[in-house]
Protein backbone atom coordinates (compact mmCIF):
# COMPACT_ATOMS: atom_id res chain seq x y z
CA UNK A 1 0.00 0.00 0.00
CA UNK A 2 1.44 3.33 -1.00
CA UNK A 3 1.82 6.10 1.57
CA UNK A 4 -0.47 8.34 -0.53
CA UNK A 5 -3.26 5.77 -0.36
CA UNK A 6 -2.67 5.30 3.37
CA UNK A 7 -2.88 9.04 3.82
CA UNK A 8 -6.17 9.16 1.89
CA UNK A 9 -7.62 6.33 3.96
CA UNK A 10 -6.68 8.18 7.13
CA UNK A 11 -8.36 11.30 5.86
CA UNK A 12 -11.52 9.35 5.02
CA UNK A 13 -11.41 7.73 8.46
CA UNK A 14 -11.07 11.13 10.11
CA UNK A 15 -13.83 12.56 7.93
CA UNK A 16 -16.26 9.95 9.20
CA UNK A 17 -15.12 9.87 12.82
CA UNK A 18 -14.54 13.58 13.52
CA UNK A 19 -18.16 14.87 13.44
CA UNK A 20 -19.26 12.19 15.88
CA UNK A 21 -16.19 12.59 18.06
CA UNK A 22 -16.62 16.37 18.19
CA UNK A 23 -20.27 16.04 19.19
CA UNK A 24 -19.46 13.43 21.82
CA UNK A 25 -16.60 15.45 23.25
CA UNK A 26 -18.67 18.63 23.31
CA UNK A 27 -21.96 17.33 24.62
CA UNK A 28 -21.00 14.27 26.67
CA UNK A 29 -17.41 14.29 27.89
CA UNK A 30 -16.88 18.04 28.26
CA UNK A 31 -19.94 18.45 30.54
CA UNK A 32 -18.63 15.60 32.72
CA UNK A 33 -15.21 17.23 33.04
CA UNK A 34 -16.76 20.68 33.53
CA UNK A 35 -19.16 19.36 36.18
CA UNK A 36 -16.26 17.70 38.02
CA UNK A 37 -14.43 21.02 38.01
CA UNK A 38 -17.54 22.95 39.11
CA UNK A 39 -17.86 20.64 42.11
CA UNK A 40 -14.78 22.37 43.54
CA UNK A 41 -16.35 25.83 43.16
CA UNK A 42 -19.13 27.85 44.79
CA UNK A 43 -20.82 28.78 41.50
CA UNK A 44 -24.49 29.77 41.85
CA UNK A 45 -25.33 29.24 38.18
CA UNK A 46 -25.89 32.96 37.65
CA UNK A 47 -22.72 34.87 38.43
CA UNK A 48 -20.15 35.00 35.64
CA UNK A 49 -17.41 34.22 38.17
CA UNK A 50 -16.92 31.61 40.86
CA UNK A 51 -14.39 30.85 43.51
CA UNK A 52 -12.62 27.58 44.09
CA UNK A 53 -13.57 26.08 47.44
CA UNK A 54 -11.46 22.93 47.37
CA UNK A 55 -13.18 19.93 48.91
CA UNK A 56 -15.74 22.00 50.84
CA UNK A 57 -18.70 20.83 48.76
CA UNK A 58 -17.75 17.18 49.28
CA UNK A 59 -17.26 17.62 53.03
CA UNK A 60 -20.57 19.49 53.30
CA UNK A 61 -22.27 16.71 51.39
CA UNK A 62 -21.08 13.99 53.76
CA UNK A 63 -22.64 15.85 56.68
CA UNK A 64 -25.85 16.71 54.82
CA UNK A 65 -28.81 14.66 56.09
CA UNK A 66 -30.65 15.41 52.83
CA UNK A 67 -27.88 13.68 50.83
CA UNK A 68 -28.17 10.46 52.83
CA UNK A 69 -31.96 10.59 52.73
CA UNK A 70 -32.27 10.91 48.95
CA UNK A 71 -29.46 8.40 48.42
CA UNK A 72 -31.32 5.93 50.65
CA UNK A 73 -34.62 6.51 48.85
CA UNK A 74 -32.94 6.04 45.48
CA UNK A 75 -31.29 2.82 46.67
CA UNK A 76 -34.67 1.46 47.84
CA UNK A 77 -36.32 2.49 44.58
CA UNK A 78 -33.58 1.10 42.32
CA UNK A 79 -33.15 -2.19 44.19
CA UNK A 80 -36.89 -2.88 44.26
CA UNK A 81 -37.55 -1.86 40.69
CA UNK A 82 -34.58 -3.71 39.21
CA UNK A 83 -35.01 -6.98 41.12
CA UNK A 84 -38.79 -7.25 41.07
CA UNK A 85 -38.94 -6.15 37.42
CA UNK A 86 -36.56 -8.98 36.47
CA UNK A 87 -38.88 -11.53 38.08
CA UNK A 88 -41.98 -10.06 36.47
CA UNK A 89 -40.44 -9.55 33.05
CA UNK A 90 -38.82 -12.98 32.97
CA UNK A 91 -42.19 -14.56 33.76
CA UNK A 92 -43.86 -12.32 31.20
CA UNK A 93 -41.18 -13.25 28.66
CA UNK A 94 -41.90 -16.95 29.24
CA UNK A 95 -45.63 -16.35 28.78
CA UNK A 96 -45.10 -14.27 25.65
CA UNK A 97 -42.89 -17.02 24.22
CA UNK A 98 -45.69 -19.57 24.39
CA UNK A 99 -47.50 -20.47 21.18
CA UNK A 100 -50.93 -18.93 21.65
CA UNK A 101 -53.55 -17.42 19.38
CA UNK A 102 -53.29 -13.64 19.32
CA UNK A 103 -49.81 -13.70 20.86
CA UNK A 104 -48.70 -10.75 18.69
CA UNK A 105 -51.39 -8.62 20.31
CA UNK A 106 -50.30 -9.68 23.80
CA UNK A 107 -46.69 -8.86 22.92
CA UNK A 108 -47.64 -5.41 21.64
CA UNK A 109 -49.70 -4.67 24.73
CA UNK A 110 -46.92 -5.91 27.03
CA UNK A 111 -44.35 -3.65 25.39
CA UNK A 112 -46.60 -0.55 25.27
CA UNK A 113 -45.55 0.88 28.67
CA UNK A 114 -41.98 1.18 27.45
CA UNK A 115 -42.84 3.09 24.29
CA UNK A 116 -45.30 5.38 26.07
CA UNK A 117 -43.83 8.78 26.87
CA UNK A 118 -42.90 8.79 30.57
CA UNK A 119 -44.48 12.19 31.23
CA UNK A 120 -47.80 11.09 29.74
CA UNK A 121 -47.67 7.77 31.58
CA UNK A 122 -46.92 9.52 34.88
CA UNK A 123 -49.98 11.76 34.45
CA UNK A 124 -52.16 8.75 33.71
CA UNK A 125 -50.83 7.05 36.85
CA UNK A 126 -51.67 10.14 38.89
CA UNK A 127 -55.28 9.72 37.77
CA UNK A 128 -55.23 5.95 38.30
CA UNK A 129 -53.99 6.40 41.86
CA UNK A 130 -56.39 9.22 42.72
CA UNK A 131 -57.98 8.22 46.05
CA UNK A 132 -61.49 9.25 45.04
CA UNK A 133 -61.73 9.37 41.27
CA UNK A 134 -59.13 6.87 40.14
CA UNK A 135 -60.26 3.49 38.81
CA UNK A 136 -58.34 1.85 41.64
CA UNK A 137 -60.58 3.63 44.14
CA UNK A 138 -63.57 1.84 42.56
CA UNK A 139 -61.84 -1.47 43.25
CA UNK A 140 -61.30 -0.50 46.88
CA UNK A 141 -64.89 0.72 47.18
CA UNK A 142 -66.17 -2.61 45.84
CA UNK A 143 -64.55 -4.24 48.87
CA UNK A 144 -65.86 -1.52 51.19
CA UNK A 145 -62.35 -0.23 51.84
CA UNK A 146 -61.17 3.36 51.49
CA UNK A 147 -58.26 3.56 49.03
CA UNK A 148 -54.92 4.92 50.21
CA UNK A 149 -53.80 8.44 49.31
CA UNK A 150 -50.77 7.23 47.41
CA UNK A 151 -49.30 10.59 46.45
CA UNK A 152 -50.40 12.50 49.56
CA UNK A 153 -48.91 10.07 52.00
CA UNK A 154 -45.30 10.26 53.10
CA UNK A 155 -45.22 6.51 53.58
CA UNK A 156 -46.87 5.62 50.25
CA UNK A 157 -45.47 8.08 47.72
CA UNK A 158 -42.21 6.19 47.22
CA UNK A 159 -44.32 3.06 46.74
CA UNK A 160 -46.29 4.84 44.01
CA UNK A 161 -43.08 5.77 42.22
CA UNK A 162 -41.81 2.19 42.52
CA UNK A 163 -45.07 0.92 41.05
CA UNK A 164 -44.70 3.11 37.97
CA UNK A 165 -40.99 2.29 37.69
CA UNK A 166 -41.82 -1.42 37.80
CA UNK A 167 -44.51 -1.03 35.17
CA UNK A 168 -42.09 0.62 32.73
CA UNK A 169 -39.07 -1.55 33.45
CA UNK A 170 -41.06 -4.80 33.22
CA UNK A 171 -42.21 -3.86 29.73
CA UNK A 172 -38.69 -3.01 28.60
CA UNK A 173 -37.03 -6.11 30.07
CA UNK A 174 -39.72 -8.53 28.90
CA UNK A 175 -38.91 -7.71 25.27
CA UNK A 176 -35.26 -8.63 25.84
CA UNK A 177 -36.24 -11.78 27.66
CA UNK A 178 -38.56 -12.72 24.84
CA UNK A 179 -35.82 -12.15 22.26
CA UNK A 180 -33.37 -14.16 24.38
CA UNK A 181 -35.82 -17.02 24.87
CA UNK A 182 -36.46 -17.24 21.14
CA UNK A 183 -32.75 -17.64 20.50
CA UNK A 184 -32.20 -20.54 22.94
CA UNK A 185 -31.00 -23.83 21.35
CA UNK A 186 -33.98 -26.17 21.15
CA UNK A 187 -31.80 -29.31 21.13
CA UNK A 188 -30.96 -28.74 24.82
CA UNK A 189 -34.67 -28.81 25.68
CA UNK A 190 -35.25 -31.88 23.53
CA UNK A 191 -32.40 -33.68 25.33
CA UNK A 192 -33.75 -32.59 28.73
CA UNK A 193 -37.25 -33.80 27.83
CA UNK A 194 -35.84 -37.19 26.78
CA UNK A 195 -33.97 -37.32 30.11
CA UNK A 196 -37.30 -36.76 31.89
CA UNK A 197 -36.71 -33.20 33.15
CA UNK A 198 -39.93 -31.46 34.14
CA UNK A 199 -40.85 -28.01 32.73
CA UNK A 200 -39.87 -26.26 35.95
CA UNK A 201 -36.55 -28.13 36.07
CA UNK A 202 -35.91 -27.06 32.48
CA UNK A 203 -36.51 -23.43 33.43
CA UNK A 204 -34.21 -23.64 36.49
CA UNK A 205 -31.39 -25.67 34.95
CA UNK A 206 -31.50 -24.65 31.31
CA UNK A 207 -33.41 -21.43 30.66
CA UNK A 208 -32.02 -19.34 33.52
CA UNK A 209 -28.34 -20.28 32.95
CA UNK A 210 -28.67 -19.87 29.20
CA UNK A 211 -30.34 -16.50 29.70
CA UNK A 212 -27.44 -15.37 31.92
CA UNK A 213 -26.06 -12.75 29.51
CA UNK A 214 -29.53 -11.20 29.04
CA UNK A 215 -30.21 -11.15 32.79
CA UNK A 216 -26.82 -9.57 33.43
CA UNK A 217 -27.34 -6.97 30.71
CA UNK A 218 -30.78 -6.05 32.06
CA UNK A 219 -29.51 -5.82 35.63
CA UNK A 220 -26.82 -3.37 34.56
CA UNK A 221 -29.00 -1.21 32.29
CA UNK A 222 -31.93 -1.42 34.73
CA UNK A 223 -29.74 -0.19 37.60
CA UNK A 224 -28.46 2.74 35.55
CA UNK A 225 -31.98 3.70 34.44
CA UNK A 226 -33.56 3.31 37.89
CA UNK A 227 -30.98 5.39 39.72
CA UNK A 228 -31.56 8.25 37.25
CA UNK A 229 -35.35 8.37 37.87
CA UNK A 230 -36.44 11.98 37.44
CA UNK A 231 -39.44 12.53 35.19
CA UNK A 232 -41.92 10.42 37.14
CA UNK A 233 -40.76 12.08 40.37
CA UNK A 234 -41.08 15.57 38.88
CA UNK A 235 -44.57 14.93 37.52
CA UNK A 236 -46.11 12.69 40.16
CA UNK A 237 -44.78 14.04 43.46
CA UNK A 238 -42.32 16.91 42.85
CA UNK A 239 -40.17 15.21 45.46
CA UNK A 240 -42.99 15.38 48.01
CA UNK A 241 -45.20 15.17 49.90
CA UNK A 242 -42.46 15.68 52.49
CA UNK A 243 -39.48 17.09 50.67
CA UNK A 244 -36.72 15.82 50.68
CA UNK A 245 -37.70 12.85 52.85
CA UNK A 246 -39.69 11.39 49.98
CA UNK A 247 -37.55 12.68 47.15
CA UNK A 248 -35.02 10.96 44.92
CA UNK A 249 -31.39 11.76 44.21
CA UNK A 250 -31.56 13.26 40.71
CA UNK A 251 -34.64 15.36 41.52
CA UNK A 252 -32.89 16.72 44.59
CA UNK A 253 -29.81 17.46 42.53
CA UNK A 254 -31.95 19.43 40.08
CA UNK A 255 -33.57 21.33 42.98
CA UNK A 256 -30.18 22.21 44.42
CA UNK A 257 -28.93 23.61 41.13
CA UNK A 258 -32.03 25.29 39.71
CA UNK A 259 -34.12 26.18 42.76
CA UNK A 260 -31.48 26.75 45.42
CA UNK A 261 -28.79 28.14 43.10
CA UNK A 262 -26.03 25.89 44.40
CA UNK A 263 -24.58 24.70 41.12
CA UNK A 264 -21.17 23.92 42.64
CA UNK A 265 -22.70 21.84 45.42
CA UNK A 266 -25.10 20.15 42.98
CA UNK A 267 -22.09 19.25 40.80
CA UNK A 268 -20.49 17.56 43.82
CA UNK A 269 -23.78 15.69 44.28
CA UNK A 270 -23.68 14.65 40.63
CA UNK A 271 -20.09 13.54 40.76
CA UNK A 272 -20.57 11.49 43.92
CA UNK A 273 -23.60 9.92 42.30
CA UNK A 274 -21.53 9.05 39.25
CA UNK A 275 -18.95 7.34 41.48
CA UNK A 276 -21.60 5.51 43.52
CA UNK A 277 -23.27 4.22 40.34
CA UNK A 278 -19.92 3.07 38.93
CA UNK A 279 -19.21 1.37 42.28
CA UNK A 280 -22.55 -0.46 42.20
CA UNK A 281 -21.93 -1.56 38.61
CA UNK A 282 -18.46 -2.88 39.53
CA UNK A 283 -19.98 -4.83 42.42
CA UNK A 284 -22.60 -6.26 40.07
CA UNK A 285 -19.88 -7.18 37.61
CA UNK A 286 -17.75 -8.90 40.25
CA UNK A 287 -20.68 -10.78 41.73
CA UNK A 288 -22.27 -11.92 38.50
CA UNK A 289 -19.86 -11.80 35.57
CA UNK A 290 -18.24 -15.15 36.44
CA UNK A 291 -21.62 -16.84 36.63
CA UNK A 292 -22.66 -15.65 33.20
CA UNK A 293 -22.00 -18.04 30.33
CA UNK A 294 -21.85 -16.74 26.80
CA UNK A 295 -22.32 -20.09 25.03
CA UNK A 296 -19.92 -22.47 23.26
Amino acid sequence: MTSCRKHREWLTFLGFVTPNAVLFLTFTYWPIVYSAWLSFTDWDLLRPTHETVGLDNYLKLLGDARFWRVLGNTAIYATTVVIVAQVFSFTLGLLLNMKLRGQQIFRTVAFLPHVTMTAAAALVWVLLLHPQYGPLSAVYSAFGVRGPNWLDSASMSLGALILVGLWKETAFASLFYLAGLQGLPQECYEAATIDGASKSAQVRHLTIPLMGPTIFFLLVTGTIAATKAFDTVAIMTEGGPVYPDTSMYVYHLYTLAFREYQAGYASAFAFVFFLVTIGVLILQWRALARRVHYGE
Binding site: P241, V242, Y243, D245, R259
Partner: peptide
Amino acid sequence: SPALRSAFDEAFQKILMQ
Protein backbone atom coordinates in the same frame (compact mmCIF):
# COMPACT_ATOMS: atom_id res chain seq x y z
CA SER B 1 -34.09 32.87 50.33
CA PRO B 2 -33.98 29.28 49.04
CA ALA B 3 -32.49 28.08 52.35
CA LEU B 4 -35.16 29.72 54.51
CA ARG B 5 -37.94 28.71 52.17
CA SER B 6 -36.91 25.05 52.02
CA ALA B 7 -36.42 24.83 55.80
CA PHE B 8 -39.92 26.24 56.43
CA ASP B 9 -41.52 24.11 53.69
CA GLU B 10 -39.90 21.00 55.12
CA ALA B 11 -41.15 21.74 58.64
CA PHE B 12 -44.65 22.54 57.31
CA GLN B 13 -44.79 19.25 55.41
CA LYS B 14 -43.45 17.20 58.32
CA ILE B 15 -45.96 18.76 60.72
CA LEU B 16 -48.99 18.25 58.50
CA MET B 17 -48.09 15.08 56.62
CA GLN B 18 -46.06 13.16 59.19
